[in-house]
């Protein structure tokens, strides 16, 4: 019996995604592809801009500091603080002190995406085989060319690992934007009075699917940008998600 009622609730949830219905308020139509696509596009806007801004800050920063071998303390602190301060608390803080706006949510999500991106880029550059860097210098490469021609390509798997971690967590966290007054796919989860249980289940299904799609797409990107030489040398190592999930201890390079 429980299984049957659970199945029918999931069925209602799926129906919410494909077909609009009268709201439990009675006067508006909710659900259906039109509304789901509208919420999806808002969701992707929030996530996309946040990821873009975070990448613009964290990747160049991580590359340069990694190349110079400076900022070890910064790298570990950024990742530790990023873990200790819950992203939801950041969103709540920004919302209550700076007011409800898309810009605030995007700023909060950007701060959430920076630690995995920065740490992975930094570690990616630091763990490039020093022999390769020496060889490049021996061939007359300047500092900029070492960074762009050797360290960057060899750290791409980890940079994209960070991008993948950041993308999945930003997409997941954008779900709570409606609690701060900005619409996203999470809207039906929060506004149960309007969307009903079917809306909640339907939105939860859509969010779960979106997260899996983002993960798969970024995993494919990560694999695509990995230089062939590294794939041959490292075998399955390149498929690791990246240093962000590794212990902090390993971030420290000698």
């Amino acid at each position: 019996m429980v299984a049957a009622s659970a199945l029918s609730e999931f069925g209602d949830g799926l129906r919410f995604l494909v077909q609009s219905d009268t709201s439990s308020y009675g006067d508006t139509q909710v659900g259906g592809p039109h509304e789901v696509l509208r919420l999806l596009s808002l969701h992707l806007q929030l996530s996309g801009f946040s990821l873009l801004f975070a990448a613009l800050v964290a990747i160049p920063g991580g590359l340069v500091l990694g190349h110079l071998g400076r900022g070890q303390f910064l790298a570990t602190s950024v990742s530790n603080i990023g873990r200790a301060v819950p992203s939801l608390a950041i969103i709540a803080f920004f919302f209550s002190f700076l007011g409800p706006s898309k810009a605030n949510i995007i700023l909060a999500l950007t701060l959430l995406a920076i630690p995995p991106l920065f740490t992975n880029t930094y570690v990616g550059v630091r763990q490039v085989d020093p022999d390769s860097v020496d060889a490049a210098r021996g061939m007359g490469y300047g500092e900029a060319r070492v960074l762009a021609g050797v360290e960057l390509p060899m750290s791409l798997p980890l940079v994209f690992g960070g991008l993948r971690t950041a993308a999945v967590s930003v997409v997941a966290t954008a779900t709570i934007a409606p609690l701060a007054g900005v619409e996203s796919l999470g809207t039906p989860l929060v506004a149960r009075g309007v969307y009903g249980t079917a809306g909640q289940i339907g939105a939860a299904i859509a969010i779960a699917l979106l997260a899996v799609v983002v993960e798969v797409v970024f995993a494919a990107l990560q694999s695509a940008v990995t230089p062939r030489g590294l794939k041959l040398a490292a075998g399955r190592r390149t498929r690791r998600r990246g240093a962000y999930l590794l212990p902090t201890r390993r971030v420290q390079t000698p």
């Binding site: 429980v2 009622s5 659970a6 199945l7 609730e9 999931f10 999945v168 997409v171 997941a172 966290t173 779900t175 709570i176 999470g186 989860l189 249980t197 909640q200 289940i201 939105a203 939860a204 299904i205 969010i207 779960a208 997260a211 899996v212 993960e215």
Partner: peptide, 19 residues
């Protein structure tokens, strides 16, 4: 476990509710 990690907890809260 990777799939479980990828699914946003918020979505899982609601997906578990019927069960």
């Amino acid at each position: 476990t990777g799939i479980l990690y990828t699914l946003p907890s918020l979505a899982v809260f609601f997906l578990l509710q019927p069960i």
